[in-house]
Design a protein around this nucleic acid. Structure first.
Lengths: 246, 246
DNA sequence: CGTAGACTTGACGGCACTCAAACAAGGTGG
DNA sequence: CCACCTTGTTTGAGTGCCGTCAAGTCTACG
């Protein structure tokens, strides 16, 4: 069992190791904190607004999105998760969910009961700071999205998103910054960018005809990353990809 | 000295106590972690993107905003801070700032050296979780702003912001949800809403003529809170104002 | 071969933008 | 005490990004 879990946490460990070293004992403590591995189908809500989860969920494979609905029925994503991301680590201190999380594709999940995390935080101060750090990375992503939503055009926001996903997937070993698999629909893209699906389509076509994006059959290729980054005002500083003591 | 600091942290303690109890020893440890109190003038950048602060800053009095600039020179706020808020607690695990913080008014600040926080996290697990919680509340605010920016009109976003500030100020004892002091300019409001200052002005006038907002001489009054909340789709769940063990 | 889901296109309308100018109020110095 | 300056607010006219509505195309799959 431990071996299976260790393999499942590989992307998660890569994500942490890009920011700080981890002692073998800490690594083992994390593996031991997993209660179960689970599979869910695309389209399922993993947690819902108002839920009080008794465990935190790590995304092992697949894509998910945090979202909220507004009264008109429109959906807005607050984040897209890739393998190695916790989708609701904040539910541990926060208790109640203030948003929902949707599986954008079929997913595999690793479950960490809150009681196990509680023990971790009592015994492993450095590991606690690392978990804290992970939630702060989410926060940094949110701030970046706020800047994009507030001050960039929909096309620039799309450029930014494609840059971000490439880097984040490359960090966990699932592709290159300019070439990766991504199972989102254009409707999903629209919900991330805060535009209608019609306009999301026009944005995609604009990027395509500018030679900045190839996107077909769930495969994304970015032929001119430099120009795409300039268009989306993308600077990876906010991803905090620096390994140092935390 | 301890007494002066204790008074300065009053709003901070109120903010925490709305979410969980704190032991006297924890309270004292926090007071002892403050190195200095400082004053700054409106318009000063308290920290800048790229900084590596050696201390965290708690806002004792005044208003500040987290912001980023885009290439066009426009500014986007990611959050507005009120007394009792940490303005850069995330710099402790994150190390490098990915955005700047601006004093919107004259401010008083309490400084917590990282080394003192490091000791706290080694000795006080519950207190560590509370600090973690505070950064997660920021995260929840960010998600709410994302929903507003992505899916609400500028007028609705303004309504939402006035509701949010009222509740947050009331929590720390600085006014009522429908009646409080706020020293922002219309340009500041524009930077929070992600619109031009011209349009921010038009939004304010729309709210005024609808009988939803009185705002003059730094005083905000909200004559019809129910209607304002409906317009801004405001639901305070995301503020997590529930006292329970964390 | 029929259906469902995703993607694409066109026409038209409105929210929010830019540019430009005028107005108000507080502070400072002569 | 007034002229002047600075900062903040207000107004108008013209423009454009993005919205809605509606239809049509493509692809996978049973």
């Amino acid at each position: 069992m431990d071996d299976l879990v260790t393999n499942s946490l590989e992307t998660f460990f890569r994500r942490i190791e890009r920011r700080d070293g981890m002692a073998p004992a800490e690594r083992l403590a994390l593996v031991r904190s997993v209660s179960t591995l689970e599979n869910v189908r695309a389209g399922v809500d993993l947690v819902k607004e108002g839920d009080r989860p008794s465990r935190c969920t790590l995304l092992v494979s697949g894509f998910t999105a945090r979202y909220r609905l507004v009264s008109s029925g429109e959906r807005q994503f607050a984040a897209i998760h890739v393998p190695g991301d916790f989708i609701d680590l904040h539910s541990f201190p926060l208790k109640e969910m203030d948003h929902s999380v949707l599986a954008l594709s079929d997913c595999t999940l690793a479950m960490f009961p809150h009681s196990n995390l509680q023990e971790l935080t009592e015994s492993y101060p450095h590991l606690t700071r690392l978990l804290w750090l992970l939630t702060l990375l989410d926060s940094a992503l949110h701030r970046e999205w706020i800047m994009c939503l507030g001050r960039l055009s929909a096309t620039a926001r799309a450029a930014h998103l494609f840059c971000e996903l490439g880097i984040r997937l490359a960090v966990v070993g699932l592709g290159e910054p300019d070439n990766y698999d991504m199972p989102l629909t254009q409707q999903d893209l629209a919900d991330a960018l805060g535009v209608s699906s019609v306009h999301a389509n026009r944005v995609v076509q604009a990027l395509r005809s500018d030679g900045l994006l190839v996107w077909q059959a769930d495969r994304v290729t970015l032929p001119d990353l430099a120009r795409l980054r300039a268009l989306g005002e993308f600077d990876e500083r906010y991803l905090h990809l620096v390994r140092e003591p935390r």
